[in-house]
Design a protein around this nucleic acid. Structure first.
Length: 584
RNA sequence: GACCCCGUAGCUCAGCUGGAUAGAGCAAUUGCCUUCUAAGCAAUAGGUCGUACGUUCAAAUCGUAUCGGGGUCGCCA
């Protein structure tokens, strides 16, 4: 980024000079203009749209403004060419020495190259997965899980103090259903014939081992007893088991949360009562009746007085009920209390990664957070769109009810963690995508993630070869970063360095937009440049990395390779994929 | 009835805080392994960017309308 910011500053000062000479009046604050590497290298190293953004202000055609700028820029020797192109772009080419210096900067920074101070060490909590402990992780969870994890990596790289968090509901009806199903499986494990799993309980075999564990621990203790006796202990047992399984599943795909929070704690430690009372104290709670929901047929709907939160005072379309008809808390109240704990822990920025099926969540939670934080905390919710799962072209309906699921475990075992992560992270989170399990399995070897890993491995292969051919040469990073790199002059050398210099800008853009997939595409393009360079060495010996009779050039090329592996490795770290040193 | 996301090559998707001839992978066709790993490279073919207006020096990108697909609108989570 250094280089682009530097050029931008230079352009501004040149513009000021030109404006003076030409008699243009400029505003104190210039319109925002770009300084970036153009897509097509024919357009130079760096292009700016500066002239075009000034047409209105100055009242002259863009090319005329550009021409005046070019005349002034040509006096600066750090540009080897300056020209006007297209509708009024100014294209600059920089002296090779500038790029060679940039490569040194990269080597000195190592994998910290691209680290930013965008977040200024601000504390941010990223909550993701947060699946309730009623079943194993399945394909529907994977997208949010991987996305949230990569986003956390990205925010960290951009200079935020990130906490990865998982929140689960262990106090509602779902976990009661879980406990009942476990009890049934428990009776089965003890030899009873249970027949089909009744509707309303969880089908699927995944609770069998849990039941067996329970038998091993408690024997026949709960057989033939009333639900009132076993519900609570079995619930606790089952929740602990499921959470353990979930952690193991997530681990398979490289995900580890820093903090696990749960609904029961929030209720039992008094946080919920405290938060509710503070809402009451603020005059935001009343008893009233809500209109029936629109656009949806509600057979069992009856107007009844409920405990309501004045959500509409904070921009919500309606007030919200905090208690159910039966007097128990509705899901939103523990959630509000949970978010209060985040605020208490010092987070002013909270990011929640949710599935698109939680569409109304933000509209409800934002007002609540505004109320409990008095407007000082901010909630961002990123909705990952649905994943449509196919198996060889046939749609797979994921449903716990029918037991028809593709588990995370199956995905990782069949396709591989790296491929799964990369596939997910080459999509923008807000567009739905189709995941064909069978096809992905079949094509797993074609997954673009290997293309990037292969580039990394090839670089390492050259280093191994160099060590063999030049046993006396010191090819450590320290030495490489202090070399004279003036031998790196070919178009391909410079093109690669130039591309490496885009890395910090990529991190910045990806972090600002919360779009880790940009990193994947950048890495792919970098790998493509590298592979292309590699193959040129077959036609032109001077473009090989190792040139046996030219140690100085070889050393300079090794420095370039080091720059490439450095950026690939730090990019893959964001994606959460291993940078391999060898692939055979 | 209201709100959110998407519509780009045969398929899966990038590009969208406006910029130069619209990109990649897969699938198709053709070349390249005595030389640093062919999980690679080079080339060919493939698109009215859903549609229509509008804003702009400039629109796949922004706005309005419309069609199509998905999601949400609860005291469920």
């Amino acid at each position: 980024m250094m280089i682009y910011e530097h050029i931008k500053t230079l352009l501004k000062s040149t513009l000021a000079d030109v404006a003076k000479a030409e008699g243009w009046t400029l505003p104190a604050e210039l319109p925002d203009f770009t300084v970036e590497a153009p897509r097509d290298t024919k357009h130079g190293d760096i292009a700016t749209n500066l002239a075009m953004t000034l047409t209105k202000l100055i009242g002259k055609p863009p090319r005329a403004i550009a021409d005046a700028m070019v005349a002034a820029l040509k006096k600066d020797t750090s540009y080897t060419s300056v020209e006007v192109a297209g509708p009024g772009f100014i294209n600059l080419r920089l002296a090779s020495s500038i790029w060679q210096e940039q490569l040194k900067t990269i080597l000195n920074a190592g994998t910290h190259y691209g680290d930013l101070n965008l977040g200024n060490h601000e504390k941010v909590v990223v909550e993701y997965v947060s699946a309730n402990p009623t079943g194993p992780m399945h394909a529907g969870h994977v997208r949010g899980a991987v996305f949230g994890d990569a986003l956390s990596n990205l925010m960290q790289k951009a200079g935020y103090d990130v906490t990865r968090e998982y929140y689960f509901n262990d106090a509602g009806t779902q976990v009661d259903v879980l406990a009942r199903t476990v009890h049934l499986r428990y009776r089965e494990a003890l030899g009873e014939s249970i027949g089909e799993i009744p509707a309303g309980l969880y089908p699927g075999d995944y609770l069998k081992p849990v039941a067996e564990k329970l038998v091993a621990r408690d024997g026949k203790k709960w057989q033939g007893k009333d639900e009132a006796e076993w519900l609570k202990p079995l619930r606790e047992f089952a929740v602990a088991e499921m959470m353990q399984a979930i952690r193991e599943d997530l681990n398979m795909i490289g995900i580890k949360h820093d903090v696990f929070s749960n609904e029961r704690d929030v209720i039992e430690n008094g946080t919920l009562d405290k938060v509710f009372k503070s809402l009451e104290d603020k005059g935001l709670i009343y008893v009233g009746t809500l209109p029936p929901p629109r656009g949806k047929e509600m057979e069992d709907w009856k107007p009844e007085p409920l405990t309501l939160f004045r959500s509409s005072q904070f921009g919500d379309s309606s007030d919200r009920s905090l208690k159910k008809r039966d007097g128990t808390w509705s899901y939103i109240m523990p959630d509000i209390a949970y978010h209060y704990t985040k605020i208490q822990r010092g987070f002013k920025l909270m990011i929640n990664v949710l599935g698109a099926d939680h569409g109304g969540y933000l509209e409800r939670m934002r007002p609540a957070i505004a109320a409990i934080s008095d407007g000082s905390a901010k909630l961002d919710v990123l909705f990952c769109q649905m994943v449509k799962v196919f198996n060889n072209g046939e749609a797979v309906k994921l449903s716990k009810r029918s037991g028809n699921i593709i588990t995370l475990r199956e995905m990782v075992e069949e396709v591989g963690a790296d491929s799964v992560r990369f596939t997910i992270l080459t999509r923008s989170f807000d567009s739905q995508f189709e995941f064909d399990f069978a096809k992905t399995k079949e094509q797993s070897r074609d997954n673009p993630v290997f293309y990037i890993q292969y580039a990394h491995a090839r670089c390492y292969s050259v280093f191994r070869k160099a060590a063999e051919l030049f046993p006396k040469a010191d090819i450590s990073v320290n030495t490489l970063s202090n070399l004279d790199l003036s031998l790196l002059t070919s178009e391909d050398d410079i093109a690669l360095i130039r591309f490496l210099c885009n890395w910090p800008k990529m991190v910045e853009a990806a972090a600002q937009t919360r779009e880790p997939h940009r990193i994947s595409f950048y890495l792919y393009d970098l790998a493509a440049l590298f592979h292309s360079f590699w193959n040129k060495g077959k036609d032109d010996a001077q473009l090989r990395f190792i040139i046996e009779d030219n140690l100085p050039l070889t050393m300079a090329r090794l420095a370039l390779l080091k720059g490439i592996t450095t950026v690939i490795a730090s990019g893959l770290a964001v994606i959460g994929v291993k940078p391999l040193e060898e692939m055979r």
